[in-house]
Design a protein around this nucleic acid. Sequence first.
DNA 1: GAGTTTGAAACT
DNA 2: CAGTTTCAAACTC
Length: 705
Amino acid sequence: MAEEQREVMDTPERSNNNHIATSISKFEDSPVFNFLNSLSPIKPVKSMPISQTINPLSFSSFPSVFTSPNINSLRESRFLRRHQLSDPSKPEFSSDNGSMADKGKVNVEATKKLDDPRTSDEEMASEPSYECSKIVTEFAENFNFDYNSPNSNIRPKDCLEGKHMTDYESSSLALVPFVEDASRRSLYMNPHGVSQIDRSKEGSSCDWESLISDAPDMLNYESPNVSESYKKLVDYGTSFNTCMKNDMQNTQPREGSGMMENAVTDDIIDDPSLYNPKGWCLVFDIAGARRKHLDGNTSSDVNTSSNDQNLVPSRTGNDSSRCVLPSIGLHLNAIAATPKDFKIVNNEALAFGRLLIGPSSSVNSHPPTQEMLNNTLAVASSERDIDSIENGVLPVEDALPISGFMANEETNQISPKKKRRRFDQAMEGESCKRCNCKKSKCLKLYCECFAAGVYCVDSCSCIECFNKPAHEDTVLATRRQIESRNPLAFAPKVIRGSDSISETWVESSKTPASARHKRGCNCKKSGCLKKYCECYQGGVGCSINCRCEGCKNAFGRKDGIEVELEEDETNTTEKSILDNSLQSDLEQNMDSVPPATPSRTIREFSSMKKPPRSSYPSIGSSSGFNTSNQVYGKPSFFQPPPKFDNHFENFREDEIPEFLQESSSPGINSSSPNRKRVSPPGGLKSSRKLILQSIPSFPSLASNQ
DNA sequence: GAGTTTGAAACT
DNA sequence: CAGTTTCAAACTC
């Protein structure tokens, strides 16, 4: 490792100064020196080329979580560069077709492209070639960093200060957010460039199942697009991780990043299982890899989270037991729905990997990948199951909020009957859903699959479905169009805040008040007691954001006076707490704090000019009772360790301001007339937490490219 | 499985 | 921004 780093770091300048170096050879030999060397100033630049594909929007989406000056500076520089470069990568959206903002044309043109295969190919070909190796490396780095692959000799820990890494390693949960974030963003980035690897594999059909099982075989690509996604994912993830790392370390951001890339990357690369090139499934694969690592070498990583160690092994090899996780679908929304469960987050992250749908969201569950999905699901589910088991709850029940997503995933299972059966069992029918679109072509939010950011699968009953990998361009274009209209269109509808604080305050009721429907429902006749109600469907209580009439939501009525009061108090308390202590936590404990998905979201939204009608502020609020856990029999399933919760909250808060500022729309705070808790622009602080929670994890809007 | 109900999404 | 239409899921039978 040290040698490799040296080589990498061995810049011309360094070579010229060899004679000088000799005098300090002893220093070089020291780990510290190696570390310093690894902090190559060049590294930061390196990411730039890769970022070409990154959408300008991605900038905004960059996690605002990291508020440290260093990070910010780094972020800015990098993003700016990326931004500039991003255009070339997206000819069809920007140059060729004009701005995506051009709503009317988007679909049409995309459709045209689809019609003409050559068009897409050409575009693909025109795509700037990327340095796959770098990407892979960086990507690997990300994963390695996140998962601490046992196989890797070089680990972030090696480079980073022991303390920081230790903190991360102490809990895989903490790491998850990074992965998720990275993967998600990258995925969202539209991928039009085809990686070399992808091309080589392009058109090849894969036995996903086998691929998954055999990490080395993962290099097969199902589609060219995948590679792009992968690249972006890598790129974005890399930058993101880098920033995070830097931030965490609070040291020379750029340099640190470079170091990390080199160090971690190599190791990961060595482990094929860690970097499955298959774009969307990459995440899953990674997860699988991770699981494998855990399984195979659980003990190797002392720092591995207890959960992983305990749970993973238990689940390994037990496919039948790996039921489906509702969130496995990995829908973006799902993520938001279950922010508390870090494990779930992992799964979600995995999902992102799959999500191809767009740059923004992405779950890519296109037909060919069904096998993969099954496998991936199994992987993801394993973790999730673990969690569930851990909590003594059956995984199946979690599905509700994300049932829609799961439906897709599960749907994908068709090919492998066995697995499907397994999933069905796990799902218990609740989360098994497929779209049945007749007129929307699955390109509107009417389509659950599309809305979830996943491709339709064969099991869907849709007609004239365009929500398939083959129509990626169309899907992406449509997505962008929709997002341009409503940046939060693909955001998770139900946001489950993982605020330990809230829980604490509401602990008596056992109802984490953090879960809320993003926009609130508008039910008139269902009394919010049927799945027509999105709040109810999401397993969350109605809140002040809801315009429902005669609300009887079992999870919490919006008009519940008690609830409201509780919420207010909780919010206030939380606010004060956060304000007082969280800030410090962020700064001081960044190392142990995983990047929260929310940050991602926030950044993504940052690009938004027009806030959706939904009001973020209230979302996070504790107003609604999230009895979903109770209902589903998972009391604490969604609730992450308090420590992490706090951290997340912190991030969110930090992010919120940025997000709000950028969005600069008071409307974001609350669109509904009833909003008691409207947080005015100035009131960001108070609403921060809420916003963050609401923002949690949804497909990157901006990242859509 | 067909038909109805419902409310979100989309449209005007 | 409000009202209307469209749409597909949820629901009922």
